[in-house]
Design a protein around this nucleic acid. Sequence first.
DNA 1: AGAAATCCTGCATTAACCTGCAGAACCGCA
DNA 2: TGCGGTTCTGCAGGTTAATGCAGGATTTCT
Lengths: 248, 248
Amino acid sequence: MLKKERHDFVMRQINLHNRVLTSDLVQLLNVSEDTIRRDLQELAEKGQLSKVHGGALSKSYQSFFDDSEVYAKDAKIAIAKKTIPLIKDGMVVLTGGGTSIIELAKRLPENLHATFFTISPFVAIELAKYQRIEVILIGGLFSKNSQVSYGGHVINQLSEINADLCLLGTSAIHPQDGLTDTDWEINQLKKAMFNSSKKAAILCISEKLDTSLRLKVVSLDNIDYLITELDPEAAELDPYRVKTLQIR
Amino acid sequence: MLKKERHDFVMRQINLHNRVLTSDLVQLLNVSEDTIRRDLQELAEKGQLSKVHGGALSKSYQSFFDDSEVYAKDAKIAIAKKTIPLIKDGMVVLTGGGTSIIELAKRLPENLHATFFTISPFVAIELAKYQRIEVILIGGLFSKNSQVSYGGHVINQLSEINADLCLLGTSAIHPQDGLTDTDWEINQLKKAMFNSSKKAAILCISEKLDTSLRLKVVSLDNIDYLITELDPEAAELDPYRVKTLQIR
DNA sequence: AGAAATCCTGCATTAACCTGCAGAACCGCA
DNA sequence: TGCGGTTCTGCAGGTTAATGCAGGATTTCT
């Protein structure tokens, strides 16, 4: 069996099961443990998988959960700072949940006079600290996963709102696939939020760039602002430079 | 099962439920307790969670509510324990905000199967930890003082609800004046909550007894249960012994 | 206060890892 | 065909990581 064939086999296993054990591969491919280990090493160096004690895991699998807090906090603060200028006095703003948005909510100018609709209780609690911001918490079924209101009742209420700006965090964004997500209900929710706003801004830490998930929310055309912690001129952002999309 | 997979699993559980029990993980992952403990230790060192006796908690969650400062916490815990038996499987429960209610929400039986409506985002977040409880967050204008939804939109939604039990914290309660409050809007809100429920329970730490405020919500007659941290036979409670009011 | 659950420490075992080496297979080239 | 050079593979050995278990200490519950 050629090395390349083995590599392909490994990658197939990984794509299929998100993981693979060294010991299994030894049996399946009928080669020595060392060979397998060297294969995994090589693939890991090429960045096609991540090696762990006992085997290897798919790269995308890792990013399944968001180890946010300490790690990307600086980035999120940077994003928040760039987002603030978009919010002007008197605006009606609609926001999602997500840590980026919460960081933003913590850093608004003290004298901002605006109306915020939000589906996230965390955001509502943060916003309530500002004297001059009116906060409307959109209620409904409460999602145990994403800690936001969702479901038909929320969609209904959203349909009655006409906001100036919609602020959303990112699950995944990709030049071709646009904004994508894993959960059907959250997906519907985000679509409804887009429909309820004149403009939409996506807050996105750079590591979410060029990733995509199963369900499409909207394409890049529907997004007005893309805000990352990177320099707006950075090369990583080149694929996202579409006419209608302002990058900051 | 690879270590990394276990870690991911743990973090998913934590992101989902804000907490996780060592014993549960032992069962779910089918490894020894020591392994789980070491995993938690490791994740705690990486700062991804905080370890506590019996399991671990989400970090972000902790920073959100630092409940160490809750006033009269022991009393509130005692009240919570007495309240739990009122809530039966299948019930529809309507709750207010307030620290007593939050303490209660933290101490519900893990296997309780019920539907909770609440106007408090804090309560919603707590309740979301329970697998078998359906949580509906009632949305509307968000009060900066009392951190609950209020206003016409809330009253409207309440009118569509018919709950079995309403749980309310206390601002003030008095044998003659009944349940009273200071804020007009909150007052309206509480009235509406009473109207939406078959029965009502008042959670009340003893120092709120025999006090009254300007605006009346309801008289004692309309209350079904009065729950304090005191012995139900205590003399302080004598003035409240009305036929229709059960004291616990 | 006593029982039960949980935690910690040290130890032994097993599995997985790494390094270096040597033979096999393959390559290009005369 | 023969010959250096390269790559791939397996093996030996010594090292590290992971796990479970025993015991005793600590915490929590009642």
